[in-house]
Amino acid sequence: MLVLGIESSCDETGVALVEALGAGVPRLRAHALHSQIDMHQAYGGVVPELASRDHIRRVLPLTREVLREAGCGVDAIDLVAYTRGPGLAGALLVGAGVACALAAALEKPVLPVHHLEGHLLSPFLSADPPEFPFVALLVSGGHTQLMRVDGVGRYELLGETIDDAAGEAFDKSAKLLGLPYPGGPALSTLAEGGDPAAFKLPRPLLHSGDLDFSFAGLKTAVLTQVKKLGPALDDPQVRADLAASTQAAIVEVLVKKSLAALDATGLQRLVVAGGVGANRALRSQLDAACARRGVRVHYPELHLCTDNGAMIALAAALRVQAGVARPQRGYAFDVQPRWPLEAIDF
């Protein structure tokens, strides 16, 4: 089964082909990705209307590129998958519309996919795929969640952010430091030259006794430090120190809450997925902490941490293999800009 996946939930257009062979782990045949970072940088953040228009321009050329790379024609596609949500409504409609039109033209079935399920399952495309069951730390954009995962479609929410997510804390703190969009990667790069203990910043909900997160207070603490420093923030070392201290606070919360989730479930396997999962400090500290406990940690390949079509095609293939989704031959569609992962109903 050859699955074409289309991702268009925010500011990256992704298209990929994944091949499912029997009951084995599907393999990635080809993928292509276009990032809108340069376009949105002038505005300091994503402009939804511009994002939607750019998806329209990119999705078909990327599809042709993927088919060329895979060495197959469009008729070889057995299933077309697309991101139904969550995400920006206009951007989601582009991917959904193209996917359903293509499937209808080919008389092939179509399958909507949850964006976060794509991230959750993306480590199965890595050289070291996980095995069920596991605890998943999902750190993608506006989402920070801990899930117990017993199989495809079998997800239990353990904890989630009650306000800002980890990715938002990175991005908003970076903006306060005057760093360009997208702020998270820029802050992480700046932090490499700083002292993580230079500023005492809060670790919200670290000792709450539950598995929920909160990063809004950390952002406010960074704002307070920026105001307090004033012109001193122009010193490159001071900025690096504040960046490093901010990153240290976020990473410590993510690591300790993940370990608490492992303790609560009794599981010995952790999956980390989503854009923040590419953060080197997070990976280093999780690897060290889990190694001390004999816990296996799995990540997506670095180039598959951000939004991409491969994770959408993979999620569709795995859902079909597991018998938890039936591809549709009706081509009416809708999108779900707000859609909890545990609310998947197809």
Rank of each mutant, 00 (worst) to 15 (best):
H115A: 11
L2M: 08
P180Q: 03
F199N: 05
S9L: 04
I250Y: 12
V15I: 10
P185L: 13
Q247T: 13
G178P: 03
R329W: 10
P236D: 10
H34T: 08
I6E: 00
S173H: 00
A332F: 06
D128G: 04
Y155H: 12
K257Y: 14
G330K: 13
A23P: 02
K228G: 05
R53K: 15
L259D: 12
R326A: 15
Y181F: 13
S122V: 15
R148T: 11
Y181V: 07
H143C: 08
G5D: 01
D163Q: 01
G323T: 09
P133M: 13
H34V: 13
K172H: 02
A278C: 11
L254P: 12
G151K: 06
I312V: 14
G22S: 07
M39W: 08
L304I: 14
F134I: 13
P340T: 13
S126M: 00
G183I: 10
Y43P: 07
A243R: 08
P185S: 14
Q36W: 06
L201S: 14
S122K: 05
G151I: 12
P129A: 13
L93Y: 02
S188A: 15
Q247F: 08
H40G: 04
T13F: 02
L242F: 07
G230Q: 00
G178Y: 03
S284N: 07
A248S: 10
P133G: 15
E117F: 06
V113R: 00
L116A: 07
V226Y: 01
F215C: 09
E65Q: 13
Y299R: 00
A16C: 02
A198P: 10
E160D: 11
F199M: 11
K219C: 08
A291T: 03
Q41H: 03
L21G: 11
A20F: 03
P133Y: 10
S126P: 00
L158W: 05
C72H: 06
A243I: 09
L158Q: 11
H114D: 06
E12S: 10
M39C: 09
P327N: 11
E49I: 05
L201I: 14
L179T: 11
A99E: 03
G178K: 02
L341I: 15
R338F: 09
G159V: 12
I56R: 01
V297E: 06
R269W: 07
G14N: 02
A165F: 04
H143D: 09
D54M: 06
F170Y: 15
D287G: 08
Q285T: 14
N308Q: 01
L111R: 04
A232F: 02
E12V: 07
A221C: 10
V238P: 00
